[in-house]
Amino acid sequence: MKIGIIGAGLSGIIAARELVRRGHTVELIEKSQSVGGRLATRRIGDGQADHGAVYFTVRGEALEREVQSWMSADWVRVWYADPYPRYVATDGMNGLAKHLAEGLTVHLNEYVEHVRMEKDGAVIVKTDVTERSYERIVMTVPLPQSFERLGSLVDQIEHSLRRLVYAPTFVGLFECTGDVQIGADGILDQDLTPGVLKVINNRQKGISATSLISVYMEETWSEEWYERPEAETLAEIERLVREEVGDLSIESRQLKRWRYAQAKDVWHEPFYQVSHHPIYLAGDIFLEADDPSGRTRFESAYLSGLRVAEAIEKNIGR
């Protein structure tokens, strides 16, 4: 079976790996120049900084088994444990995504414009480059982006799912000179200056040769500042982080805006099928019914990709 997956973040990659393992022909379509989605790492000067997922944790057996194999391959390691392990990729989070996507067919730098059904049951994906036909598709991009591309098919999606909304997150990236210390392990995430969610030193985290500081802002702050000029926003983030950690010798500054960083609510099923159509929605917003955390995270993205692949395999021929 030929299956298309829109979005080469973690959910899309995991779904693709599982479907390929089961013998299907799978193509990932990704608008960016690299796989990974929020498994994002940026090179700055002689160092690099994660600016999407900071780390991930493990609660369930499925991901635990995978992580043990990733550790054996030296793809990930434990950063610190307080009280349970925080895992990071050894060469930045995007490096893990690239390892996982190795061997998969990925069409990078392609923007999906719309998805439509044909009378013969085929699903046509129109991009800014070409049209492709599939027997099944999985859409793993944030829901607002999926809904926009589905056109009138959105009317067949439950209203409660269509009402789910996301909050943005801003991340300031600061290249610093000298031996900067951020807490004992390179992270501050408790009792911070209002507006600041996390402060991370990527050198202490073990992925950067230089002190690159990632400053994650709270969703309310990010919403309030979303339309402001970049220079003004960076200046305010810098002021707040200096208030938190003291003086820093900063050589350069960059800003990352994540428009759909965190879902304000979640869907308590690991994927969603659009009516009777061979179109599935997946991603970190889709949680298993017994998920103990109740929030989006690395593991929910992983499980959503795995479960939607299992469902497609199970439903073949029905």
Rank of each mutant, 00 (worst) to 15 (best):
K119H: 12
V138A: 03
H159R: 14
D155C: 07
R149V: 13
M139Y: 02
P85L: 11
I157N: 06
K119P: 11
K126S: 15
A167H: 06
S146T: 14
Y166G: 05
V129S: 10
R77V: 11
P83I: 05
P85G: 12
G95M: 08
V76E: 07
L96G: 03
V78Y: 04
W79S: 05
A167S: 14
L143W: 11
Y84A: 14
Y166W: 11
T127V: 09
Y166H: 04
G151H: 08
S146A: 15
V125T: 01
P83E: 10
Y166S: 07
S152M: 06
Y166T: 04
R132V: 01
H114D: 10
L143G: 05
M139K: 04
L143Y: 15
P85I: 11
S133R: 15
L96Y: 01
P85R: 13
L164T: 11
Y166A: 12
H99W: 08
H107T: 12
K126H: 12
M117W: 01
Y80Q: 08
L100S: 10
N109C: 08
Y87C: 02
L104T: 01
T127Q: 04
V76W: 00
A81L: 12
Y134H: 06
R116I: 05
T140H: 11
D82N: 15
H114A: 01
Y80T: 13
N94E: 12
R86F: 15
V112D: 07
Q156V: 09
V112Q: 01
M93H: 10
